[in-house]
């Protein structure tokens, strides 16, 4: 194990140690592989994007090809929160709670322009300017509504991100 002696910062040393630790990094790679191939989504949405989510799960587009079809109704067993709709002030506590109930590691996809920024409803008195104002978002998928293929693209991008290990752990 070679440590960079020039770096005096302790934190860097720890990171360096972690990076050079063969055992842990290999396991980490395996875990990330497993995680990236099995996002079990929990879907939130209002009207048009969820229709596309349903289409994505159905025969023509088939989310199951990537192994992401196990849609859980329970946040406790979900890995991926798909927010597909504008967040109103009334739904804000629900989203926050569901997010808090999901076990780590967890990810969020903001699907559609409503979820990203409030979309056409951005001037509404009760609409939040995007999900990222309450919970951290990993992938933004613009569209109105998002095509099922675009949703897959977002999920595959997230897969790349997870496989590289670049995700936060709160």
């Amino acid at each position: 194990m070679v440590l960079d002696t020039k770096k005096n910062d302790n934190l860097n040393d720890v990171e360096e140690l972690a990076r050079n630790n063969i055992l842990v990094t290999t396991f980490e790679k395996l875990w990330n592989w497993g995680r990236s191939w099995s996002f079990w989504p929990l879907n939130y949405g209002c009207n048009c994007c969820p229709i596309e989510v349903m289409a994505a799960g159905a025969g023509r587009f088939d989310q199951a090809r990537f192994g992401y079809e196990v849609v859980r109704a329970v946040p406790r067993q979900a890995d991926l929160l798909t927010v597909a709709g504008p967040i109103t002030l009334k739904m804000k506590p629900a989203i926050e709670r569901v997010w808090a109930q999901m076990p780590e590691p967890k990810w969020v996809i903001a699907m559609g322009n409503c979820a990203i920024s409030g979309g056409p409803f951005k001037d509404g008195y009760s609409v939040l300017p995007g999900v990222d104002s309450i919970i951290p978002v990993d992938v933004y998928i613009p569209g109105c509504p998002v095509r099922p293929e675009a949703l897959f693209h977002g999920m595959l991008e997230l897969k790349k991100k997870v496989q590289q290990g670049e995700y936060r752990r709160s």
Binding site: W33, G34, R35, W37, S38, A64, G67, D79
Partner: peptide, 20 residues
Amino acid sequence: LGPNRLGPFGIFQTIADAIK
């Protein structure tokens, strides 16, 4: 089609799920 990305015919899909 069902799982078809991981391994032949997606046979390793459950292993990924188990690891997760």
